[in-house]
C-alpha cells in the first residue's frame, strides 16, 4: 500500500509557491519512490491556518507544511538571529545554503522543541520599502509611516527613522491607497504579488532583512518511513529548498520588470547607504547578543557563523553554490 503524504500550504493552488515548490515536491516524492509515497494536496489553507503550522504538523493534521517561527516568535531564541538586519547573504540561493549549514548546530533544537522536524529551509528575498513619497536614500525615510509585519521588522523600520504601523495584509492595500500608511516593507516579489505596486511609486531596494520560512514534517510520519524512503524524502526536500529560492529569484526579476513597465522608480541602495543602515540597526545586534549570551551555543557563536557564511558566499556565484548541493549536500537536518 502506498503511504499517503499530506502536503498543505497557505497560498492557493494558482500561486507560484504551490505550483513551483510544494506540488513539485509532492510529484518528486511520488516519482522517486515509484509511487510508494502518495502525495495528497491541500493548497489554500483548507486544513489549517499558516499560523497553526507547527501544531498542525505536530499532531498529524498534515504531514508537510509551512511552520514559520515568525508566527511563534516568543518560542524561539537563536532562530530570531536570522531575522537580524543584513544577517543572511544577498543571494537567494546562498541564503538557503547558509540556513542549511546553520540549522543543525543552532536551530534544530529550538525548532524540534515545537514537536516537528524540518522538511526544508527557505527564506524570503530581502525586504525593500515601497512608498508613495519619494525615497532615494535612508534619510528620506524619516517620519514616513510604514506598514510592517511586526517583531524584528517593526524594530528595523523604527531604527531607520520611520514610523512602523501594524496592520493585517488584507487591510494593507486599502490603507496604502488611502494614505493611512506612506509605505510598506516587503520583498519586491511580494509587493507585486499583493499588487501594492499599483499604489506605490518608489521602491527603495535595501534588502534589509529576510524572513526564514521553513517547512516542517510530522516526525511520526518521517520516522516511520523505511530508510530508502527517508532518502527519497531527504533528496526531494533539498531540491524543494532550492526550488523555493529559484522561484523567488525569478519572481523578483519579473516584479522588477513589471515595476519598470508601470513607471515605478526603483532605487538600489548604495554601499554608503547600506553602511549607514548597518550602523543604525547595530543596537539590534547588541540586544540579541546580550539576550543570548548564556546560551550554548551562544548568540555570539551564531553571529560569527552567519557572518562567515555571508562573506564566504558573497564571493561565489549561484551556479557554484548550486553545485555544492550535489558535492556537499546538507547534513543533519533531521
Amino acid at each position: 500500500d502506498p503511504i499517503e503524504v499530506k502536503i498543505s500550504y497557505n497560498q492557493p493552488e494558482t500561486s507560484p509557491g504551490w505550483q513551483e515548490v510544494m506540488k513539485v515536491f509532492g510529484e518528486e516524492l511520488a516519482e522517486k519512490s515509484d509511487g510508494r509515497l502518495k502525495p495528497v494536496y491541500y493548497p489554500g489553507e483548507v486544513l489549517h491556518t499558516v499560523a497553526d503550522g507547527f501544531r498542525a504538523t505536530g499532531t498529524g493534521i498534515t504531514d508537510v507544511t509551512s511552520a514559520w517561527p515568525v508566527y511563534q516568535a516568543n518560542s524561539f531564541n537563536l532562530f530570531l538571529g536570522t531575522e537580524l538586519p543584513l544577517a543572511l547573504p544577498t543571494s537567494d540561493i546562498a541564503a538557503v545554503r547558509a540556513l542549511n549549514e546553520l540549522y543543525p548546530e543552532f536551530f534544530k533544537k529550538e525548532y524540534e522543541r515545537l514537536g516537528v522536524k524540518l522538511a526544508f529551509n527557505a527564506a524570503t528575498p530581502g525586504y525593500d520599502i515601497l512608498t508613495t513619497k519619494p525615497v532615494k536614500s535612508v534619510d528620506d525615510l524619516k517620519g514616513l509611516k510604514i506598514r510592517a509585519a511586526g517583531g524584528g521588522i517593526t524594530e528595523i523600520v523604527e531604527r531607520l527613522g520611520a514610523v512602523p504601523v501594524t496592520m493585517t495584509i488584507s487591510d494593507a492595500y486599502t490603507a496604502f491607497q488611502q494614505g493611512v500608511v506612506d509605505g510598506i516593507i516587503l520583498s519586491t516579489a511580494d509587493q507585486v504579488a499583493y499588487r501594492l505596486h499599483e499604489v506605490g511609486k518608489y521602491n527603495y531596494r535595501i534588502g534589509v532583512v529576510r524572513v526564514a520560512i521553513p517547512q516542517a514534517v510530522n516526525p511520526k510520519f518521517y520516522d516511520s518511513l523505511p530508510e530508502d524512503l527517508k532518502t527519497v524524502f531527504d533528496e526531494a526536500a533539498l531540491n524543494a529548498a532550492y526550488n523555493y529560492q529559484k522561484m523567488y529569484k525569478n519572481l523578483t526579476a519579473s516584479a522588477l520588470e513589471t515595476m519598470k513597465e508601470e513607471g515605478i522608480e526603483v532605487t538600489e541602495a548604495t554601499p554608503e547607504d547600506l553602511a549607514k543602515i548597518e550602523k543604525m540597526v547595530a543596537p539590534m545586534y547588541d540586544a540579541f547578543l546580550e539576550k543570548n549570551a548564556d546560551r550554548s551555543p551562544s548568540g555570539a557563536d551564531l553571529i560569527e557563523a552567519m557572518t562567515a557564511l555571508r562573506d564566504k558566499y558573497e564571493g561565489m556565484s549561484d551556479t557554484e553554490i548550486l553545485k555544492l548541493k550535489d558535492t556537499d549536500p546538507a547534513e543533519g537536518l533531521r
Binding site: G143, K145, T154, V163, P164, V165, T166, M167, V180
Partner: peptide
C-alpha cells in the same frame, strides 16, 4: 496617535 502624532501604539492591534 497615528494620524495626528505619527506615533501609533505598537501593541494596540494585538
Amino acid at each position: 496617535l497615528r494620524y495626528f502624532f505619527d506615533s501609533p501604539i505598537r501593541w494596540a492591534q494585538e
